[in-house]
């Protein structure tokens, strides 16, 4: 048996006492008196799969509802409790104290918005009438070659990308002011309008909920909006360590 490491909280943190981790093992705390590491026993010979990833994420998501959490990357295991105390809580002491201070009373909320193809194309045609004209012209000519169709498709794709960028910027404008920090923008998939992590103070969560609801009101007819969290501030660990989150 080895122990899997989920995250670190303050020793004073009150957490749910029925947390179940990887391989259905109970999550427990090992403490140095100031900070606690969240761990569970795992059989290192069993491959990690989907359930293990979800267990890691969901344990931390339940904890972050109650307390400030420093999340660890998935896949860290140590020999035993003593190793956790020594190599994590003691050796990383300054770093953990810093991160807990920076993240105090904050959670990460992630918003992902994806265009739904038909309503988005409808909007594109509505905004760019010349595309409608070209489409109609090709239909009138009949038997338009593949090349003409590819060019039409290319123009539609470009217009859709413009719409995507514009929508993404507008959504960001409405969410960013409610967050303490915004994560590095991610590379976006083809239908993705926005995919961003926000570091949000607990006291502003309700405001943020409402802002996302407002986006759904205004854009829900042509986008699928996913609202994920609260998560521990995964996306802000690196910037916090680099000293880029300046309020702390």
């Amino acid at each position: 048996m080895v122990v899997h490491l989920y995250g670190v909280v303050s020793a004073q943190a009150r957490l749910p006492d029925d947390l179940q981790g990887r391989q259905e093992a109970p999550v427990r705390r090992v403490s140095d008196g100031e900070r606690d590491a969240l761990i569970s026993d795992v059989d290192p010979d069993r491959h990690a799969g989907r359930r293990d990833l979800l267990a890691h994420a969901h344990v931390l998501e339940r904890c972050v509802e109650e307390a400030t959490v420093v999340p660890f990357q998935f896949g860290i295991a140590l020999e035993d409790d003593d190793a956790v105390r020594e190599r994590v809580l003691t050796q990383q002491r300054a770093q953990l104290a810093h991160l807990l201070r920076v993240f105090q009373e904050h959670v990460q909320l992630t918003v992902q918005a994806l265009h739904q193809e038909e309503p988005a194309l409808r909007e594109v045609l509505h905004r760019w009438p010349d595309l409608v004209a070209e489409r109609d012209r090709l239909q009138r000519v009949g038997q338009a070659g593949d090349l003409a169709q590819v060019q039409l498709g290319q123009a539609v794709a470009a217009a859709l990308e413009d719409l995507t960028i514009e929508d993404g910027a507008m959504m960001m404008e409405r969410l960013a002011p409610l967050a303490t920090a915004v994560g590095q923008p991610q590379a976006l998939g083809d239908t993705e309008v926005l995919h961003a992590a926000f570091l949000v103070a607990r006291s502003r969560r309700l405001d943020f909920d409402h802002a996302v609801g407002g986006l759904r009101d205004d854009y829900g007819h042509r986008m699928t909006i996913r609202y994920i969290g609260p998560q521990p501030p995964y996306s802000f660990v690196e910037p916090a360590m680099a000293g880029e989150l300046s309020w702390a």
């Binding site: 999340p71 896949g75 295991a77 660990v237």
Partner: peptide, 18 residues
């Protein structure tokens, strides 16, 4: 998120992720 974000430490056993 959790595969490439979050804190890492120098010495640990990497869980095999098939």
């Amino acid at each position: 998120t959790i595969l490439d974000k979050g804190l890492v430490i120098d010495i640990y056993i990497r869980v095999s992720l098939v």
